[in-house]
C-alpha cells in the first residue's frame, strides 16, 4: 500500500507476519504434542497449515506493490503471484485431508468408542503381539488390555 514507505514500518510489518505465522505453527505443534483427542489433533493440524500458508503469503510480499490483478492499464509492481497460487493449492489439499480425517474419526468412534489416539495406539500395539505388548505396556502405566 502507498502508506508503507519507511524501512522501520516495513520491518515491523515483517515481524508481525513472521511472528504470526511462527505463532500459528508453534500453536499447531503444541496441539499435536499435548492433545490426544483426534478432533483436537485435526484442529491443531489445521492451525499448523494456516501458519505455513501465512508464511508463504508473507514470502511473496513486496513493499508498495499491488495485488496481482491487472485493472485497466496499470503499471507499477505487483506482489509475487506464485505463493498465492501455491497456498490456494495447499488450502484445498488441507481441506481434503481434514475431511478424510473426520470421516476416519467417525468410523473410529463408531467402532472403538474412543477418539484418544494414544489409547488407540496402545490397542494397536496390543492387537497381535501378546509378547511385545507386555513389554511395552508397563512404561505407560497400564496393565489391563481393553
Amino acid at each position: 500500500m502507498e502508506t508503507l514507505s519507511t524501512a522501520t514500518e516495513l520491518e515491523w510489518l515483517g515481524w508481525t507476519f513472521y511472528a504470526g505465522s511462527a505463532g500459528l505453527v508453534l500453536l499447531g505443534c503444541y496441539a499435536l504434542f499435548a492433545a490426544r483427542h483426534a478432533l483436537r489433533l485435526l484442529l491443531g493440524l489445521f492451525l499448523l497449515e494456516s501458519g505455513v500458508n501465512l508464511f508463504l503469503v508473507a514470502v511473496g510480499f513486496r513493499p508498495d506493490a499491488a495485488a496481482p490483478i491487472l485493472v485497466g492499464e496499470q503499471a507499477g509492481s505487483m506482489v509475487d503471484p506464485l505463493p498465492q497460487a501455491l497456498i490456494l493449492t495447499a488450502i484445498v489439499i488441507g481441506v481434503g485431508v481434514l475431511a478424510l480425517g473426520l470421516a476416519l474419526a467417525v468410523r473410529v468412534a463408531k467402532e472403538e468408542g474412543t477418539l484418544d489416539l494414544a489409547e488407540l495406539g496402545r490397542r494397536l500395539a496390543a492387537t497381535h503381539t501378546p509378547a511385545t505388548a507386555e513389554e511395552t505396556l508397563p512404561q505407560s502405566g497400564r496393565t489391563e488390555t481393553p
Partner: peptide, 9 residues
Amino acid sequence: FGNAPMQVG
C-alpha cells in the same frame, strides 16, 4: 522481509 528473490514471480 519484502525482498525475497522472486525471480519466477
